[in-house]
Simulated scan of single mutants.
Amino acid sequence: MTITNQDELDGIKHIGRIVANTLQAMAKALEPGLTTAELDQIGQDLLDHYGAVSAPRLTYGFPGATCISVNEEIAHGIPGSRVIRAGDLVNIDVSACCNGYFADTGASFRVPPATPALDRLCRDGKRAMQIGIAQVAAGRPLSGIGRAIGRFASDRGYTLIRNLASHGVGRALHEAPGEIATWPTRGDSRRIARGLVMTVEPFLSTGSQWATEGHDGWTLFSDSGAPVVQYEHTVIAMERGAMVVTLPG
């Protein structure tokens, strides 16, 4: 989606706050002994409160309101009977629709106690997202996002998952300009249009490069078993930089 008027901007900012507030509430509730289904219900209740609808459920028939992925699961985890335990790495991804507008956000969380290496991976995963967001502005190359994140990852000895990309969002969960690599690529000459709504969501790892699909047809796993973190915001490309719309408030 490309923002063309104030009503569209207000609509994207509204759903952005909804998913951000939902993610924040789920993160605060995260503790050992909670099942992923119970955590998902917190998200469902909040989306209902705000008058929003789960985007993966609406778009793809996903069997949950949110995606919750634990440890070896790195994305699209189905909420269920899995019990969250001390030391787990939990990714929560919240995307939703309200009044015809979509936004998408996510983050990885450590359930204490966490190892120093996992703390460092999470800190650097968030930094990788911020570096990607810093490349977003009207007229800049889309491929600049992946180049900048790739330099950061390489300098610190990390790898990037190369089959989970950022994407356009706004009037649908996934839309034009299609997939946007968060790793270095060649041959992508696309430029960022003013007002473009998109996600920035690198998947940073200590060794994995690919996500593999599990038997349930949804859950994605680290190909090597190495830890993977994901941090995601929905942003709007403005003349001088990115407006982040998935901030709680």
Rank of each mutant, 00 (worst) to 15 (best):
T2I: 15
T4V: 13
D7V: 01
D10I: 02
I12F: 10
K13I: 00
H14A: 11
H14V: 01
A20K: 00
T22Q: 03
T22H: 03
E31R: 15
P32R: 10
P32D: 13
T35D: 00
T36V: 06
A37E: 05
E38H: 11
L39H: 11
I42A: 08
I42E: 10
D45F: 01
L47C: 06
Y50N: 08
G51W: 00
A52H: 10
V53T: 15
T59V: 13
F62A: 02
G64D: 06
G64K: 02
T66F: 10
C67L: 09
S69D: 04
S69Q: 02
V70G: 02
E73V: 08
H76I: 08
H76T: 10
I78D: 02
I78P: 01
P79E: 05
V83L: 03
V83M: 07
D88T: 08
N91S: 15
D93Q: 07
V94P: 09
A103C: 06
A107Q: 10
S108C: 08
F109E: 02
F109D: 03
R110G: 12
R110M: 14
A117W: 05
A117P: 02
L118E: 15
D124H: 15
G125E: 08
K126E: 15
I133V: 15
A134C: 06
Q135V: 09
A137W: 13
L142Y: 15
L142Q: 07
L142G: 00
S143G: 07
G144Q: 12
G146M: 06
R147V: 13
A148P: 07
A148K: 09
A148L: 06
I149D: 04
R151W: 13
F152P: 07
F152W: 11
R156P: 04
Y158P: 03
L160A: 09
L160P: 03
L160I: 12
I161N: 09
R162Y: 09
N163T: 07
N163P: 10
A165Y: 15
S166I: 04
G168V: 01
V169D: 02
G170I: 00
A172M: 12
L173A: 14
A176E: 14
G178T: 02
G178F: 11
E179I: 09
T182I: 08
T182H: 11
R190Q: 13
I192D: 09
A193M: 06
R194I: 06
G195M: 10
V197E: 11
M198K: 05
T199C: 13
V200D: 03
P202C: 04
S208H: 07
W210N: 08
W210R: 11
A211F: 12
T212K: 14
E213W: 12
G214Y: 02
G214N: 06
H215D: 14
L220E: 08
L220W: 15
L220N: 11
L220C: 10
F221P: 00
S222I: 08
D223T: 02
S224Y: 07
G225D: 15
G225V: 04
V228D: 07
Q230S: 14
Q230Y: 13
Y231V: 01
I236S: 08
E239F: 08
G241T: 10
V244N: 13
V244R: 12
G249P: 12
G249C: 12
